[in-house]
Design a protein around this nucleic acid. Structure first.
Lengths: 207, 207
DNA sequence: CTATGTGAATTTATTCACAGCA
DNA sequence: TGCTGTGAATAAATTCACATAG
């Protein structure tokens, strides 16, 4: 296949394929067709095949895809084939939910540090991770942690981000409901669930 | 303007515009140009103008948009101009975070019911909402609640959704990390933050 | 015969460029 | 003059249809 930039939409779907594949592996399957995979995850088979085609031939004509092999390939593309250490900042309800989230492990993430600025929380353990003082964020660089998850109140978001960037973080998952500014080299993905809830009524059949 | 279906991408951006407008209103502004609004929310001015153009003329040439008027119009389009009652199912850490989330109120949502199946939680109050037994989900219809937010473990997701659908719910915000099945008349938006975290490494500059 | 892989066609979304109004 | 509103141009993503390999 000749070179072409991978569409963002394809990258967005890769983790979904991964979820579907892990599920069907759990079901004891060995091979799967784009048809069947698409059935699970509600994506059209030709979309799946087209997405994979950007990376080369993953399947076998007439037989489908070998699940374990495909999982390995997608993980490699997404750079999830090595354990990725992440730091959480803000251990409130949301932060605690993130820390307890089993799923992350499956996808290669290890949230090995947690920070908060509340004296009540510092020193406590949540899910085997000891909560540290936010002022110690600068230690992340030598601890080889380059991924940050922030779940702090809106007002604290930008300063937290600034501290993370200074500590050498290269990617941020932002749960704070606001816009944050970072240097171009840092990738931010914001999850603002109010924005999602707010478009639900538009699609709901009226009264 | 002649009729044309509103692009999904436009609908997805409307809540973002709303956030930007509410922010600039808070700053004491009265009018705003697409240029300035775009500055806040990192969206190009011509995209903003094009999006608004699907609904008709919101602004004044040469002067920009009157903020309060524009807020009102977007809320109306998104059907957020009336208070929307919602029910939360699953009051764990994530559910509690949702219940405590101040933002929802700003966008017209009132989470007036919460359900859990843990006997320890039933009867307790979280954020002024008394937690009810999940078996009472059927009461939602007469309580005029047509929006559900689910934050239950993966295994309980589909049965919870089924109960919500049976109770007449018309829209669901799903935080459970799995695919759920609903009748076509029900709109589901899934927030699966593992999927978002999983594409972050792809975009992070290597080592 | 089955299901992939992929150019081509189509649809959808973004960007441009400028006419038109305050 | 300043900024909106919008057709037209461009770009991106999806869908189709079928040649091709096992």
């Amino acid at each position: 296949m000749r070179y072409r930039k991978i569409p963002d939409e394809t990258v967005r779907r890769l983790p979904i394929y991964l979820r579907g594949l892990l599920f069907s592996l759990e079901q004891g399957q060995v091979r799967i067709s784009s048809q069947d995979l698409g059935g699970f995850i509600m994506i059209k088979p030709w979309q799946i095949r087209k997405d994979f085609s950007y990376f080369g031939g993953f399947g076998t004509r007439g037989r489908g895809y070998e699940i374990t092999k495909l999982i390995k390939q997608i993980k490699k593309i997404l750079k999830l084939d090595v354990v990725r250490k992440a730091a959480l900042v803000g251990v409130g309800n949301l932060g605690s939910a993130v820390l307890a989230h089993e799923d992350f492990k499956t996808y290669g993430f290890d949230i090995s540090a947690a920070f908060d600025n509340s004296p009540h929380k510092i020193g406590k353990k949540v899910n085997n991770v000891t909560i540290e003082d936010t002022v110690k964020l600068s230690s992340l660089k030598k601890r080889k942690i380059d991924l940050g998850i922030i779940a702090v109140p809106r007002k604290a978001a930008q300063e937290t981000v600034d501290a993370l960037v200074k500590a050498g973080i290269k990617g941020i998952l932002n749960f704070s409901p606001c816009f944050i500014t970072v240097p171009k080299r840092v990738k931010v993905i914001t999850i603002d669930f109010t924005m999602d809830l707010a478009r639900l009524p538009y699609y709901m059949p009226k009264s």
